[in-house]
Design a protein around this nucleic acid. Structure first.
Length: 181
DNA sequence: GCCTGGATTGTCT
DNA sequence: GACAATCCAGGCA
């Protein structure tokens, strides 16, 4: 499988979000096909980057292709991929994947839920792949264990396009993309 | 199955 | 001091 290069990420968050569908997220031994994402940009009331760089979201303003992991609701982590040019404050939230390998590790970390609910939410992706703030800022284009690969499966020609989830502002933007079932 | 409310803490105003 | 890009358990149908 081919690792995605920096230039894949150096585009608008909306383009990268579409392109990430059906790509494969790899963290150590675990692999999952990305089936649901959301785009966030700086000119976006729902984005952490809306007010400029802060210690928490500074990764979003760094080079594209890095991983942005944040902590929220007092108990959950969510994983994003930084896009655009440095200073843009853009990212794509990885909301759900389809498990491919490392199922045993995922099941153990997720506490024995049915496979269908193993990784169907952004915080669950982090739990299943054991991602936390330690992974914030790592470079997906140059990291031995964590990267995103292209195994030849094309993004869907007609992806589902809906409002984003779990936010109060910016819900009018159709920036959530899903692989149709 | 669908809906409701609680958990729990880092982060920003 | 309020809130958050969420999840899960529990109640009811």
């Amino acid at each position: 499988m081919k690792r995605l290069e920096r230039r894949f990420y150096c585009r608008d968050a909306l383009d990268v979000a579409l392109g990430l569908l059906n790509k494969v997220l790899v963290v150590d031994g675990c692999r999952g096909r990305i089936v649901e994402v959301e785009a966030y940009r700086q000119d976006d009331p729902a984005s952490h980057s809306r007010a400029g760089p802060t210690p928490r979201c500074r990764t979003m303003f760094g080079p594209a292709g890095h991983l942005y992991v944040y902590f929220t609701y007092g108990m959950h982590h969510c994983a994003n991929v930084v896009t655009g040019e440095p200073g843009d404050g853009q990212a794509v939230l990885i909301r759900a994947v389809e498990p491919l390998t490392g199922l045993e590790d995922m099941r153990r970390r997720r506490g024995g839920v049915p496979d269908t609910r193993l990784v169907d939410g952004p915080a669950k992706v982090c739990q299943a792949f054991a991602l936390d703030r330690r992974h914030d800022g790592l470079d997906l284009t140059d990291h031995p264990g964590a990267w995103i690969g292209d195994d030849g499966v094309e993004p869907p020609t007609a992806p589902g396009r809906t409002r984003r989830i779990g936010i109060r502002l910016g819900t009018e933007l159709l920036w959530r993309y899903v692989v149709p079932v």
